[in-house]
Simulated assay, not measured.
Amino acid sequence: MENRKRFFLEIAYDGSAYHGWQTQPNATAVQEKLDKALHTFLRETVETVGAGRTDTGVHAKQLFVHFDSNHEKLVNQPERCVHSINALLPFDISVQRVIEVDKEAHARFDATERSYEYHIHFHKDPFLINKSWLLRDIPDMEKMNLAAEKLIGTKDFECFSKSNTQVFTNICTITEAKWVKNDKGIVFHITANRFLRNMVRAIVGTLLEVGIKGKPISYIDDVLASKSRSQAGTSVPAHGLYLTKVAYTYI
């Protein structure tokens, strides 16, 4: 199998119908559908490795996965391969491109940063069902942005991590955290080198404690210092969350 090469796929998906990215025994996941389509197209067993995993109902505008294959068309006709693989996938999952990479390249471990968005709208809109969170109260965005600035930097974010999650460290480096208005409502943008499980949804819920419930901006400092999930805000619904970018030095 010396001829096997490593490839990255850039994919996107609407997570509404799936129990997250990662294949699991008793639920339908995005990875399961992708691996099945690749198996059919390549006529060989394929095990993809994703840049990360999204939870049930979370969407991805960009996610990279890697896999190994010796299929010549992946090298010689990548655009045709994209078309063929997409024809085998459900309507809510798409492959954007296929890229040959170094044999040691790794979709998860080589990622240098990841970006997410959380979408909130304030007026009932049937076209935003499962795509954005409908919120009755309009929060103080200026105050939330001042609170979000306190997240920037390299810190221990254990307070925003799902309980009983086994990770080697809770230290992350956040380089962007801000709220922006759009024509439907507001969007929270956040970028970091890595994220803990449920971290973004917990951060959004905590910032809304400041923007809606009137807690002081210093509340963020208190939550971070506590290292306790119980001190942070409630996790907001999954359907407003999008993984929007995964960055690498070689793509």
Rank of each mutant, 00 (worst) to 15 (best):
G205K: 02
S132V: 06
G52V: 04
K245Y: 09
V180C: 11
N86Y: 02
V101N: 09
K213E: 13
G52A: 08
G57M: 10
G211D: 05
K5V: 01
A60Y: 03
F64D: 00
A148D: 09
F109S: 14
S69Q: 05
A87K: 13
N164H: 15
M144S: 09
Y219W: 10
L135H: 09
H83A: 14
A232P: 07
T45W: 01
R80H: 13
R194A: 05
R53G: 10
K245F: 07
F64Q: 04
H119L: 13
F188Y: 12
E32K: 12
G57T: 10
L224I: 13
N70Y: 09
F67N: 03
D35K: 02
F91C: 11
N130F: 02
R136S: 12
V101C: 13
Q166I: 08
I220P: 10
E113Y: 03
T249C: 08
L63A: 14
D102Y: 01
H106G: 10
T234I: 14
H19W: 12
L207A: 09
G50D: 01
A225V: 13
A37H: 03
R4G: 01
A192P: 03
Q24L: 12
A27N: 14
W179K: 03
H123W: 04
G233T: 06
C159W: 00
V82E: 04
G153D: 09
Q96N: 12
V204N: 04
M1T: 15
E158L: 05
C81L: 04
W179T: 04
A192S: 13
K131A: 10
T206E: 02
T249V: 11
D68H: 11
E100W: 01
P25H: 09
R136G: 11
